[in-house]
Structure formats: C-alpha cells, structure tokens
C-alpha cells in the first residue's frame, strides 16, 4: 500500500488525487434576511459548473427558504451549506421557479419532502427532465456527479404561504417556460422572478411562449414590490427596470424575426442582424438572438412562406 501511494505521488503529484471540482459560492445581501447567490453571467460551461442562475436565500424562523436549487447535486449541497452558514439553520423549503437545469437540477441535494414545485414542473421532473442530463454531463462532466432528480413532494400553488413567520406570495405563471413560479417576499418587498425577468442580459427563449411571457410581465409589473431579483443578471434596485428591459427585448425580437423573414434573409443572416443600440448593455445578446432564430425560424417558415405544392 505504501509503495503504491508513493508511486502515485511520484507519478503525478496532485492531479491524480485531485478532488472533484468545488463550487465557491458567495451570498450577496439584498434586503433584511434575504440574500442572492449570483450566477455567472455566462452560458453553462465547465468553467462555472453550471452555476449561472441567481439563487435566493430567505431567512425564516423555521429555517432558510431557497428559491431554486442550483444546477447539480454538488451545487445544491453547496447552496444548502451556505444557507445554513448564513442563518444557522438547515434549509426548510426549496421552491423551483421552473424546470431549466441551471435552476432545478440541484434538487437531489434536498429531501423531497421540503422541495416544492408547481404541478406542471413536478410533472416535468417525473417525465422527460432527465433527458437534459445527457447534455449537461457533456458540458459539465464531473460537476454533475451524483445529480439525480427526485420528485418534489410539495405542491407550490398560486397564493400566499407563511413559512417560519415569513409571508411569501407565490405567483404561478408561464411564458419563459411552460410553468414559471415567481415569489414575492412581502416583508422586504423583494420580487424573485426566476427567468421571467432577465437583467442586463438578453432573455433566453428555448421553451418560451411570447404572448404568455408578456402577460406574466404585465402582472409582475403591477405587484407593488420595491426591488427585484432576476433569474440572471444583477439585482434590480428598482421595481421596473429589469421588467421593462425584458419586455423591450421580447417586443423587439418577435417583429424583428418576422421582418427578417419578410426581407428574404437566411437564418444565418437573421442571427447576424444589427441589434438596436438600446440593447448594448445586455450581455450575450448576439448569442441569445442566434438561439432565438433557431427556436422560431422553422415555425416562421411554415407560417410565412406560401405553400406552392398541392
């Protein structure tokens, strides 16, 4: 045994014995008893372990409430440890805003009995969500070790809930994805939106329903909150800046894609079209435009190119 260990050490020193990659998370105070763990403002990549979404931690007398669970088992574990350090108590509840893996694939780090999701999201977890795993393992490798998707045992409905004396208003919406949950912390006036709102980052549309998304944004704009934690990007210290930004992008995107098709552009040209100067502050705008072209172009062809065969 000793000889083997010596051999290993002599061969490679640290690399052979290196630990799995570790998430180094930092909580940013947002309001009294409310923190955000900011995601990297980048696509899911080996460099960030998939930790690209904002995760919120809300202190209550019963223990912290997490809004979203992280991208992997290890990410969920690191979030649980951080929440415990901040509040001195184990996590009491996890709400999933939606199914996208950067927000939800850490649920395996929590007992199913404390994880809550809307019925459509719970159905997706039980259904084809694991299909995302293959793609994530390809992108994230060992960061994904141990990632499983146990079904959430709690149902998140639309309306108020009180956890450890703290009142949260749950808003079951849709638009960014088939089911999106937003959470209003009434004590601090902080609205946590998941990916219904992006801030200083272009919105992503892989499973979006744009009319439903606009309706959700209209509703969120009228809640009377003071500040907003978006799904991606920095905290918005105002009630409406990030909502308006998200809305402006969606309002531009849809007619711009239709106009590109009307003008006889190719998909590649549409993805390279000029992005208006007013979106200059949005990270990954070109990337998200090209993704959106991919999401919408085939349907636009079917709807807008005249049928010429019988």
């Amino acid at each position: 045994m000793i000889a083997r260990r010596q051999l290993l050490g002599a061969l490679a020193g640290a690399p052979l014995l290196a630990a799995a990659p570790a998430y180094r998370l930092q909580a940013e105070p947002v309001a009294a008893g409310l923190w955000v763990v900011r995601g990297a403002d980048a696509p899911i990549a080996m460099a960030n372990g998939g930790a690209i979404a904002n995760i919120s931690i809300i202190a209550t007398d019963a223990g912290p409430v997490l809004i979203d669970a992280g991208a992997s088992f290890a990410h969920g574990q690191a979030l649980a440890a951080l929440a415990r350090r901040l509040t001195g108590k184990p996590v009491a509840r996890v709400y999933l805003t939606h199914l996208h893996p950067d927000h939800s694939f850490g649920i395996g780090a929590f007992a199913p009995g404390i994880v809550a999701a809307t019925p459509p999201v719970a159905a997706q977890v039980a259904g084809d969500a694991a299909g995302f795993s293959t793609g994530l393992y390809r992108l994230l490798g060992d960061w994904m070790r141990g990632t499983e998707l146990p079904a959430p045992a709690l149902v998140a409905g639309d309306g108020p809930v009180v956890i450890g004396g703290r009142r949260l208003r749950l808003l079951a919406l849709s638009g960014h994805s088939p089911a999106d949950l937003a959470v209003l912390d009434e004590a601090s006036g902080t609205l946590i939106t998941g990916d219904l709102v992006f801030h200083n980052r272009a919105p992503a549309t892989p499973h979006a329903d744009l009319p439903a998304w606009r309706r959700a944004l209209d509703l969120l704009a009228g809640l009377g909150h003071q500040r907003l934690v978006p799904g991606h990007g920095p905290v918005d210290a105002t009630p409406g800046t990030a909502i308006a930004q998200t809305r402006a992008w969606l309002d531009w995107l849809e007619p711009a894609l239709k106009a590109a098709m009307e003008a006889g552009l190719t998909m590649v040209e549409a993805g390279d079209m000029p992005i208006p100067q007013r979106f200059a502050g949005l990270a990954v705008a070109r990337l998200e435009l090209q993704r959106s072209v991919s999401h919408y172009w085939p349907a636009l062809e079917a709807a807008r190119l005249p049928r010429v065969s019988d």
Binding site: P43, P206, T266, M267, V268, G271, R286, L287, Q290, R291, V293, S294, H295, W297, P298
Partner: peptide, 11 residues
C-alpha cells in the same frame, strides 16, 4: 451561428 442550439437543424 456561434452555438448549435439544435443539432438536428443547424443553419
């Protein structure tokens, strides 16, 4: 495009 959003339909 910079990324292959859909590997079945890559422009």
């Amino acid at each position: 495009p910079a990324i292959a959003e859909n590997q079945r339909q890559f422009p």
